[in-house]
Amino acid sequence: MLRRLYDWTLSLAARKSAEWWLAFIAFVESSIFLVPADVLYLPMALSRPERAYRYALIATIASVLGGIAGWYIGYYAYESVAKPVLEFYGKFDEFEALRTGSGMGFILLMLVTSGLAHLPPIKVVTILAGVMHVDIWLFIVSAIIARGARFFFLAWLLRRYGEPIREFIEKRLGLIAGAGAGAVILLYIVIKYAL
Results as ranks from 00 to 15, higher is better:
R3L: 02
R4T: 02
D7M: 02
T9I: 01
A13M: 06
A14P: 00
W21M: 07
I25Y: 06
I32D: 05
V35P: 00
P36K: 04
A45C: 04
P49M: 14
Y53C: 04
Y53W: 15
L57T: 13
T60C: 08
I61M: 14
V64S: 08
L65V: 12
G67I: 08
I68R: 04
A69T: 03
A69D: 05
Y72A: 11
Y72F: 15
I73G: 07
G74P: 01
G74I: 00
G74H: 13
A77E: 02
P84H: 13
E87N: 08
Y89I: 06
F92G: 01
F92P: 04
D93M: 00
T100Q: 11
T100S: 14
S102G: 06
M104A: 15
M104I: 11
I107V: 15
T113L: 09
G115F: 10
L116S: 03
A117P: 07
P120M: 12
V125Q: 06
T126S: 07
V131I: 01
V131R: 01
V131F: 05
H133A: 13
V134F: 12
D135R: 05
F153N: 06
R159Y: 03
E163F: 11
R166S: 13
F168Y: 14
I169F: 14
R172T: 13
G182R: 06
A183P: 05
I189H: 02
V190N: 04
